[in-house]
């Protein structure tokens, strides 16, 4: 899929673990792992909202489109 999430990069930049992000957002670690691996087929606005809030970023920081 040409849309790529940069969750791992943001986690490193924020010095945050996947488990900590899971605790803060309420998104399960398994689902975050799917997002991190790029296996997700769709992203809910509520999920995007929680990620942007806890990672203090914009949606554009989280994902890029590569043709």
């Amino acid at each position: 899929m040409p849309v790529r999430l940069h969750l791992d990069r943001l986690l490193v930049a924020r010095r945050m673990s996947l488990e900590e992000l899971s605790d803060r957002t309420g998104i399960s670690a398994a689902n975050l792992a799917i997002l991190k691996a790029g296996d997700a087929r769709a992203l809910r606005f509520s999920t995007l909202d929680a990620l942007c809030r806890e990672l203090a970023c914009q949606p554009a920081d989280l994902m890029t489109w590569e043709p």
């Binding site: 975050l32 799917i34 997002l35 997700a40 087929r41 769709a42 992203l43 809910r44 999920t47």
Partner: peptide, 8 residues
């Protein structure tokens, strides 16, 4: 169902 499973 598969789509829903992979919708985070």
């Amino acid at each position: 169902r598969r789509e829903a499973e992979l919708t985070i």
